[in-house]
């Protein structure tokens, strides 16, 4: 049996594989999620769900009230397309599946009539100038993608 030697310092045969893995994925947005996206797409309206007991309005929609666990899935209310920025983060991480080019602002916007903030992209304002308390309005995508991005972004009023 012939043997050959290859020491750990010997990198003659070392190399790097570059690969691409395809991950087919499907995500059912749910019955309420579908209604929410369809309202964005067809009516250019942001819809929330209101608890008749707590008088709290939730957006994005959820089936049960966060406070009293009442089923609220039928109690749709229309929210305003304007709101106030209550919190934000600047996305700088270069992930190739991100919806926008970095850096961009991910804001939490409390819409008129809502009690919970909606997290979405904020554009039209410099990263240096973004402030909590800013008034923002929704800008809808001209072309539908049947996703949450049918509401394209928020921008200053």
């Amino acid at each position: 049996m012939t043997t050959m030697t290859c020491k750990k310092e010997d990198t003659t045969n070392c190399f790097v594989f570059e690969g691409k893995m395809a991950l087919p994925n499907q995500y059912f947005v749910g019955r309420l999620g579908s209604k929410f996206i369809i309202a964005l797409r067809d009516k250019k309206k942001i819809m929330g769900l209101k608890c008749p007991k707590c008088k709290k309005t939730f957006v994005p929609p959820r089936e049960y009230c966060h406070f009293c666990q009442t089923k609220i899935d039928e109690n749709w209310v229309e929210l305003g397309n304007e709101g106030v920025l209550v919190n934000y983060a600047v996305v700088r991480y270069l992930g190739k599946h991100l919806p926008k080019k970095v850096p961009y602002i991910l804001g939490q916007i409390k819409l008129k009539g809502a009690d919970t903030p909606l997290t979405h992209i904020v554009e039209g304002v410099d990263i240096k100038d973004v402030r909590i308390g800013m008034k923002l309005k929704a800008v809808f995508a001209p072309k539908t993608t049947n996703t949450l991005l049918d509401l394209d972004h928020f921008e200053p009023v």
Binding site: N25, Q26, G33
Partner: peptide, 14 residues
């Protein structure tokens, strides 16, 4: 009802 279908491409190095 909406179902979102995507195929993500993941870069790998070995």
């Amino acid at each position: 009802l909406i179902t979102i279908k995507v195929t993500n491409s993941i870069n790998c190095r070995f």
